[in-house]
Design a protein around this nucleic acid. Structure first.
Lengths: 412, 412
DNA sequence: AGTTCGTTTGTGAATATACACAAAATGCGG
DNA sequence: CCGCATTTTGTGTATATTCACAAACGAACT
């Protein structure tokens, strides 16, 4: 440990460009330093041997999207975010990226930036890794101020997103203007997605995914609210976007269930809209509705996340409200409940299972662990007690709705 | 014809009591004259041989309810209302009614009252029938004035009913007071029933039934609106009342379909309420809703009349309204419609039939006149095209609702 | 203890459904 | 006209459903 030389102690006042040059000299390879948003901060000046990726980064003062996307996809950033050590990255010729080594510049868990060492003049050894480790440490103090600015900008972005979500905006033009000022690229087609997990720091766990898909998000208590979109306005953008969200959720939820308490992770998303950001409010409300319904009917809505997939549950809360306003009360269900109480039976459970199983006898019987004939008998009794006809689709559907409605209060 | 003597021409100025005595003298039997509401107008004075029914009628100045109910049930009044001739009525000992002959006093088709001849001193012959015929004619002019009063009272009753139906009433106490003033016996439990027939004079055709069940009613265009109730406040009054209404409708509709154009007779009724007449408004609205839905879905709601039996159709109009407010549009259904247009197929019809048949393959196939395997193939295609799973009850029910909702506009 | 009632399970036969596979029939464009 | 894809119908088999009927079970009542 202490036998290692302290490479950067003798240059305490070097600025970032000087630091880049210093590292480059030590590892004898071109160096690039970026902030956490992959904007170029500094780069070593001498070597002329470089690759298209570095060239583009310097010319555009930011790492090209193509490269970033690929590195997120390949899990490079995921590694960088979780490790304190340099990561060796093989060449990816198709995006003009030569072999290189990278390390994240971190303060505790916050990523302030990255140092990239291209591996072109000579291979980088474990000694060079140590150099990069120390360089990353040396860069921290110099990046903190910059980080402060970034935080302020993020704060403004968050506020802007809240405005969009709650509909506190003046005009479509004003929204576009504000987005441009904040350097936010608003997608042509978008939707709002909500992920809720009880005891987990959502933004931390999801950070890699959020960066990979370049999402805008705000955290609200146990919920993280995401604006997910696509800029390319294809014909069937709707389906594409839904697939993207489902993919994102599959990734997120599999990641979260390991961290958060089991079964406490809920996700929902609203419909996709395009043309005009005023609709964000609607998509947000729909996403909230989806989450609310999923809490009320966890079993029934298992595997469903989208508002458009909710089926009857999309109507249920409103219908329930309407029933209450109208003073309508279903006596038939009460009769069955009363029968269950009087006779210690499980007719209601039988009925619900039967309806949930779409009227399939064998499925229902198996779920209830009873003989098929028992089920047949019970259903006949239920028809007698309630005075209904389960063969009739209208009555069956109405009963299904009423049954689920009746569960709302009980299960809350 | 002209050979018949004119029994009453020589007494043009006799009042009703004198007329009763005159008839009694001619037929040598006790005579009672009532108005159309069975209130006593006059009765012959001499004979002391009489039966409990006549005795009660004179003492109460009205025919006892028990007797009226029985005569309506036995179809006696139905005969009296349709015939211009006297009707011979066998004795009904159980209600204290001896053998007698009755005739309706009519002006064109309006019944002004009745003349009853008890058959106790001697049997009544066909000559007596002619006497009664002439007596009924002679009574007409004397009853017209009384009829005028009755009409005015009926007018006030009608206005009062409209007030109740539309909710233009001040307080429960005021309602009771007004009902008492109008001599209306308001039932403890009641509901509103509507019968609609395109080209029929409803009140005329239904008159016997209306009288039999002692209903209050108003006519509104092609609709007749009925207040149906029961005074006896038993425990399960609800079911009893519903049975009464269903019986009434069975009788009414079978009578009306012969008169009105086929399939144009619609009936609906609201829920039963008790305690407080303010609820009449609700029952009326529910009855209107039932009629509206039955017009939109004649096939689906065949045999259903009660609001409480509407099943999903009770929600459908409301749901449709919400969908429109939300700007929600079901693309899946559109996809299927488009497919039908593109390929000259009948997937939508297949789906609807399948859902209506509660998912029974053989029933559906028979209804569509196709092979079972054809149906299986189509359903598989439908699942592919719409991207749904027909085994899933949630999706099936939601689809059912959306399908019926989509029909509302089209079939209006 | 025996009886009654509602419930559960069993048996068997007729009918319905699910699935795979094959053969017609249909309709459309080359 | 043919080839091609889609749709419809037919065949066969395993499995499910429906129905009638009977036996067994358990809780409540007398």
């Amino acid at each position: 440990m202490s036998s290692q030389p302290r490479y950067f102690q003798q240059y305490p006042h070097a600025d970032m460009d000087e630091l880049a040059d210093l590292i480059a000299e030590l590892v004898q390879n071109p160096i690039t330093i970026e902030d956490s948003d992959h904007k170029l901060i500094a780069y070593s000046s001498h070597g002329d041997s470089t690759d298209p990726a570095r060239w583009s980064t310097i010319m555009g003062r930011r790492v090209p999207e193509k490269v970033l996307t690929r590195l997120w996809k390949d899990g490079v950033f995921q590694e960088l975010l979780t490790q304190d050590d340099p990561v060796h990255i093989p060449a990816k010729e198709d995006i003009g990226l030569g072999k290189r080594v990278a390390i994240a510049i971190k303060r505790s868990n916050d990523v302030l930036g990255y140092i990239w060492a291209q591996e072109v003049n000579r291979p980088l050894t474990s000694e060079d890794d140590e150099i990069l480790r120390q360089a990353a440490k040396a860069a921290v103090s110099r990046l903190i101020q910059r980080q402060g600015k970034r935080k302020a900008e993020e704060q403004r972005r968050t506020e802007f997103l809240w405005e969009l979500l709650l509909g506190n905006h003046s005009s479509e033009a004003a929204i576009r203007q504000k987005a441009e000022n904040l350097q936010m690229q608003m997608p042509a087609t978008y939707l709002i997605c909500i992920v809720e997990a009880a005891g987990a720091r959502l933004d931390q766990y999801l950070y890699p995914l959020l960066m990979r898909d370049k999402l805008y998000w705000v955290v609200d208590g146990a919920q993280i609210i995401l604006l997910i979109g696509r800029s390319d306005a294809k014909k069937d953008e709707w389906d594409g976007l839904v697939k993207k969200v489902e993919q994102f959720l599959a990734d997120s939820l599999s990641k979260l269930v390991t961290h958060a308490s089991e079964g406490k992770v809920i996700a929902g998303y609203g419909r996709a809209y395009s043309g005009g950001y005023a609709q964000i409010v609607k998509s947000y409300k729909e996403a909230l509705h989806a989450v609310k319904v999923k809490k009320l009917f966890p079993r029934e809505t298992e595997g469903i996340h989208g508002y458009h997939q909710l089926g009857i549950y999309r109507y249920l809360l409103q219908l329930k409200k309407w029933e209450e306003e109208e003073g309508y009360h279903n006596e038939r269900l009460d009769k069955l409940k009363q029968y269950d109480r009087d006779n210690q039976t499980a007719m209601l459970e039988t009925l619900e299972t039967f309806l949930d199983a779409a009227g399939k006898m064998n499925v229902t019987a198996q779920l209830l662990h009873v003989h098929t004939n028992t089920l047949g008998y019970r259903l006949r009794r239920i028809e007698e007690i309630m005075g209904i006809d389960l063969e009739n689709m209208n009555q069956r559907a109405a009963l299904y709705l009423e049954l689920k409605m009746a569960k709302i209060n009980r299960e809350q």
